[in-house]
Amino acid sequence: MEKENIYQRELENLEQAKNFLKRSEYSKMDIQLEYKKLVENYEELVDQVKIITKISDRLQNKLDKTNQKLEKTNQDLHDTNVKLNETIDALAEARIGRRAATIVLIVVIALFVVSEAWIEPIIEKNIQNFWIGLILKLAVAVLIKPGEDFTNKYMLKRARKKQLMDNKVVMNKP
């Protein structure tokens, strides 16, 4: 329907030419006039097709250029996003690492206090062996680093899980 309307004039001209052909008789003059009209219309049509094709190709080219720019911008955005996420992860890891170290330090201090104030007097009183107390303290000292690593890993795991849950919530939001 739309096409018919866009080319309404051209279709009318074509119809006129077809109707002329259907006539049973025509003079030389009629033929000349009709042929002239047909040539003029054809010339106009060719001019139109030439310009429209040229413009259309050019604007398609413009669209393609814009598309390429968009793709590049999209890629740049993606790269920036990846870098940003890496930085955020590194910052979160550092923060968690500091927190884990603090927790371990508090635990170690607590253990030291407990061992000095409670366990050591019991050992001294009941076993009276200097080495057992020392071994106990050494064990606490040796466990500091693995303890810190374990706490760090545990807290990172929890943080990542939380982040995953948060992302899911954001994605499910309408």
């Binding site: 739309e2 866009i6 139109q48 429209i52 413009i55 259309s56 604007l59 413009k62």
Partner: peptide, 12 residues
């Protein structure tokens, strides 16, 4: 800023 092919005919 942009127009499609059929618009280009009407602009003409």
């Amino acid at each position: 800023e942009y127009f499609n092919t059929s618009s280009s005919k009407y602009i003409l």
